[in-house]
């Protein structure tokens, strides 16, 4: 599927937002969260540049699969390290194991039900973390209302993940073309939400 001019503008916008976030958006945090968020936004930056170069044809490469796992996992890890440092080590272990499991399932040729369950569980927990922690922190009054945008960004990435699963796993309920049509806007909106949440929250 060819990417349109609007798609390329959205990918460029996503790259610039992610670059901003890596450069200045996370400066005031401690080293652990900085490292985790740098991985998350760095991956987002490289992924959007990848699509800027190759267009939506880039979906045939394994790169989007890897980045769609690394981004939510490292984002979730960053949030846990920032707000629940007591559970940081536990979440780090989960992140490493989750990443290995998902990469293993993606590297096999055959798609078994256990693979689908693994991907769903790993992504589900990461998505849940990204949505719940910022929401709870805002409700507790520890951050400003703007921080809720981080949770919205997490919800958007989760929504994207569900839609892509519906195109990838049998029975396929959604054509891939429909997903690809909305993907650049979804990626941009998700990044914008993260930047707004971190900047003003």
């Amino acid at each position: 599927m060819q990417s349109t001019k609007l798609d390329r503008i959205l990918f460029l916008g996503t790259s610039l937002l992610a670059a901003y976030q890596v450069t200045t958006g996370i400066d005031k945090l401690s080293p652990g969260p900085i490292l985790a968020f740098t991985i998350a936004f760095g991956m987002l930056l490289l992924t959007s540049l990848f699509f800027l170069i190759f267009g939506l044809d880039g979906f045939s490469s394994p790169i989007p699969g890897v980045s769609s796992t690394v981004i939510p996992l490292s984002m979730g890890l960053g949030l846990v390290l920032q707000h629940l440092p007591k559970y940081g080590i536990h979440y780090l272990v989960y992140t490493v194991i989750g990443l290995i499991l998902v990469l293993l399932t993606r590297s096999t040729r055959y798609q078994l039900p256990v693979h689908t369950i693994t991907v769903a569980v790993v992504h589900g927990i990461a998505g849940f973390t990204i949505c719940i922690i910022p929401s709870a922190i805002v409700i507790l009054g520890r951050m400003q209302l703007w921080y809720i945008f981080v949770a919205i960004g997490g919800a958007l990435i989760g929504l994207g993940g569900i839609f892509f699963s519906m195109s990838r796993f049998e029975p396929k309920k959604l054509p891939l073309n429909v997903n690809l049509h909305f993907f650049p806007a979804l990626l941009f909106l998700m990044t914008l939400c993260y930047v707004l949440g971190f900047h003003f929250g």
């Binding site: 450069t23 900085i34 760095g42 930056l45 490289l46």
Partner: peptide, 14 residues
């Protein structure tokens, strides 16, 4: 600055 160094690091890894 650290922020720009992080950005350069990410792009270099890419």
């Amino acid at each position: 600055s650290w922020g720009y160094l992080r950005l350069l690091g990410v792009l270099s890894i890419g």
